[in-house]
Amino acid sequence: MIVVACPGQGSQTPGFLAPWLELDGVADSLAAYSEAAQVDLIRHGTESDADTIRDTRIAQPLIVAASLIAAQALVGRAGRTPDGVAGHSVGELAALVGSAVISAEHAMRLVGVRGRAMADAAAQTPTGMSAVIGGDEQTVLARLTELGLSPANYNGGGQIVVAGSLPALAELAEAPVKGTRVIPLQVAGAFHTDYMAPAVAALRSAVAAVVPSDPQIKLWTNRDGSIVTSGASALELIVNQVSSPVRWDLCMSSFADNGITGLIELAPAGALTGLAKRGLRGTPTVAVKTPEDLDAAAELLNGAAA
């Protein structure tokens, strides 16, 4: 079973869309996606600097658009769809398209709303996020409770991303739990926590206008790593996900339980294949960063050794 994984915020880098624009039809697709998301994806994906594309309003549409472009190119190259799909955080919107729950246009409209709403929510209170690497998980969680911080992403492989007030994050970094490293992340907000409650309401309103279909391939949810069989449930889950933790660790466990034989991460790729090397040891992976990676991904999708 080959699973395609769609990455989340933080995976974007300056100019990463440039090589994709060399493929036929990509410029037209990005123009349509730009209109739907209300973001100039071609300009920001080829010209804007790291600080500009770190803006949540820009980053989220860029990431989803890149995954959609890469997914279409991969299926065209391989001649078949994957067996299953999952997304990390905002990547779940691309996963909904990959499983035929919603259209690409709907996904881009929703990610535009999501990015703007989460940026607005983050602006209300100065907050941030940090990655905690290593250590005993229960000891780390207990320390977070003491500091008033929340676990935002359980990424597996001994990594938890935590979120909350800047003073509390600073205190955690100054006195880390034994056996851990604390790495501040360049994001302006405590995503996947109660700080994002205003964004949940905005996204729920936008989702109400979308009529979903049920998934046509296996679709995993960040809520608990389970497989979603209802399109309506899938949409509700991506709404609630904005203010609840991402359980990528449970997604990877479920991949293994369902007999995964390979994982392909769509553009802008790298983070999820890195996590898979620790959480899905021995599973072949391909990170589709540029069109040059499509042949290796197509080989894996068709059952050959990558």
Rank of each mutant, 00 (worst) to 15 (best):
Y33C: 01
Y33T: 00
Y33W: 14
Y33H: 04
S34N: 14
S34E: 10
S34M: 01
A36Q: 13
A36G: 00
A36W: 11
A37Q: 09
A37V: 06
A37M: 11
A37N: 04
A37P: 01
Q38W: 00
Q38M: 10
Q38S: 13
V39E: 02
V39L: 02
V39F: 00
V39C: 13
D40P: 12
L41N: 02
L41V: 13
L41W: 11
I42M: 08
I42C: 04
I42G: 09
R43G: 11
R43E: 12
R43P: 00
R43V: 03
G45L: 11
G45K: 11
G45Q: 06
G45V: 05
G45F: 10
G45D: 07
T46E: 05
T46N: 05
T46K: 05
T46D: 12
E47S: 14
S48T: 08
S48R: 06
D49M: 09
D49W: 08
D49V: 02
D49F: 10
D49H: 14
D49Y: 08
A50Y: 11
D51F: 13
T52C: 13
T52G: 00
T52D: 14
T52E: 15
I53W: 04
I53H: 03
I53L: 12
I53T: 14
R54F: 14
R54C: 12
R54K: 15
D55M: 04
D55N: 15
D55E: 15
T56W: 06
T56P: 13
T56H: 04
R57A: 14
R57Q: 13
R57D: 00
R57M: 15
R57G: 12
I58L: 13
I58C: 06
A59G: 07
A59E: 03
A59R: 01
A59V: 10
Q60K: 01
Q60R: 09
Q60S: 08
P61F: 05
P61A: 06
P61L: 04
L62F: 10
L62P: 13
L62E: 08
L62T: 06
L62M: 05
L62V: 08
I63W: 03
I63K: 01
I63T: 10
I63Q: 07
I63P: 13
V64E: 03
V64N: 07
A65N: 07
A65L: 05
A65P: 08
A66S: 06
A66F: 07
S67R: 00
S67P: 08
L68W: 05
L68C: 11
L68Q: 06
I69Y: 00
I69R: 07
I69Q: 04
I69A: 15
I69L: 15
A70W: 00
A71Y: 15
A71M: 09
Q72H: 12
Q72M: 04
Q72R: 15
Q72Y: 03
A73P: 08
L74V: 04
L74W: 09
V75I: 14
V75E: 14
G76S: 10
G76V: 02
G76P: 01
G76N: 09
G76A: 10
R77S: 02
R77N: 07
A78L: 01
A78Y: 03
A78S: 09
G79N: 12
